[in-house]
Design a protein around this nucleic acid. Sequence first.
DNA 1: CTCTCTGGTAAACTTTGTTTACCAAGTACC
DNA 2: GGTACTTGGTAAACAAAGTTTACCAGAGAG
Lengths: 155, 155
Amino acid sequence: MSMSFPKEESSIKTKDMLIGAMLRVPSEAIHRRIIRELNAAGFQGLSQPHIAVFRFPSPDGVRPSVLAERAGMSKQAMNRLLGSLEELGYLVRSDAPDEGRARVIRLTKSGHAVVAKEIEILRQIEKEWIAELGAGDFARLKLLLGRVWESPLVR
Amino acid sequence: MSMSFPKEESSIKTKDMLIGAMLRVPSEAIHRRIIRELNAAGFQGLSQPHIAVFRFPSPDGVRPSVLAERAGMSKQAMNRLLGSLEELGYLVRSDAPDEGRARVIRLTKSGHAVVAKEIEILRQIEKEWIAELGAGDFARLKLLLGRVWESPLVR
DNA sequence: CTCTCTGGTAAACTTTGTTTACCAAGTACC
DNA sequence: GGTACTTGGTAAACAAAGTTTACCAGAGAG
């Protein structure tokens, strides 16, 4: 059996839905699409967990432990992720920048290309949403989500 | 080391953010909170993957393969999940209802209690969002997300 | 100079999911 | 009525990804 996408029954009414599902479903759809299109664009070897590293904001110049913190995982797990990304040639863990005794992530050329492609995919998605909702309503949606983001709600 | 929450730098501006992150961050915050509060409410043994079963809409009366489809995972993985939930006493896989040769999930008393608690948590979250955004803007946000939901965008 | 703290690393273990394979019950077809 | 195909469920082996436990190196405090 090969993997499939969740199929939603048409009988489900958004009226009954609570905010959790309404955010989760589109969020996961976007996430799946990013992975799929990244792979299709030739960035082989990238899977779910790798994406956590390439998420906004860019990991370039950031220390491993900060990335672990951002991703909500242990330093060790992040470190293994970084190791595999280094093997794949997307970044290097450069030794000692100047400050402390810390390492710093540096994206390689293809690492930067991944970031660029990801932004491109997301801009395309936004374009599709604008086509569906209209520019005004899409802007309003982002504005509202922005207000949520800046509030203590998401902490 | 114990698990920690992602910490976000205050320097990040929502202006720069694309729709992916804006949906993902609050969505994940809600997800973590549900698990945390469910455990705190005495529903021990429930972890991340289990929640996929209890997500809207209720799994009561639904066949295992349908749940697998909804969750976007293989029948086998879902089946193991259901097995552990059965052991924990949240549901039973009742044999042969009447139709076909299929099994059907039936929530037990504590299974129904989980669903009820989950809805309670989400209603509380909505209350907090309303306090932050105002009732009008929150309603507008849900309306816009509902339009996304009903569109082909999330398929 | 030594103690302690911080950031990074490594190895063992656990969790969770897919792949592969199989079984049982319907259903279609002859 | 018997046989092949399909569907839904299950089990075991394997793979992926994360936590726990433990350790090391360097920096700063005393």
